[in-house]
């Protein structure tokens, strides 16, 4: 049995995810309000608005409060000399191995929300797949990027 990877991502990830989710759920609520207003103007049944509100409520709970925490708790990564080992999950635990010699390039990315918390995400691309380690501290992310990029410089195929 393989041990799970050891490094966790930055704890601020939860906050960043909450904000991102809140923006999306906010759109849901706006639609709900729009529906309620339309219903009151055209005298439709209020049931539709009520259902929309219920859906928005459930989404808010799931995506803003529950999932970011769950996601953070399980997110782990570890970078070895020969390969990258990533674990993530919400319902389904998934563990991925990416060998260094398959890595094509590494990127760091930072959106406005991540920037607010001085976070950045690292994206690792192979010829067939992309893997993302979300929300690391800025300096960790760039260090990780440089490290992977250096390790990935292995000579092709003596396997």
């Amino acid at each position: 049995m393989r041990q799970p990877p050891i490094n966790t991502i930055a704890p601020d990830a939860i906050k960043a995810w909450k904000i991102t989710a809140a923006i999306v759920v906010g759109v849901f609520w706006l639609l709900t309000i729009a529906l309620a207003i339309i219903s009151s103007i055209f005298e439709y049944s209020y049931w539709y608005a009520a259902i929309a509100a219920a859906i928005s409520g459930v989404c808010t709970y799931l995506f803003v409060f529950l999932i970011p925490k769950l996601r953070f708790r399980r997110w782990r990564y570890e970078v070895f000399e020969q390969e990258i080992y990533i674990q993530h999950s919400i319902m389904i635990v998934s563990r991925t191995l990416v060998p260094m010699i398959r890595v094509q390039h590494v990127d760091t990315k930072q959106g406005p929300v991540l920037k607010k918390y001085q976070l950045a995400s690292v994206t690792i691309s192979t010829a067939a797949t992309t893997h993302e380690i979300p929300a690391l501290l800025e300096e960790d992310a760039s260090e990780l990027r440089d490290r992977i990029s250096m390790l990935a410089r292995v000579d092709e195929d003596d396997v």
Partner: peptide, 17 residues
């Protein structure tokens, strides 16, 4: 072949576990 595989993933949900 081993060298053609780009990434390997193991997935498991609660009931599978």
């Amino acid at each position: 072949y081993h060298k053609r595989i780009q990434a390997f993933e193991k997935k498991q949900h609660k009931i599978q576990k």
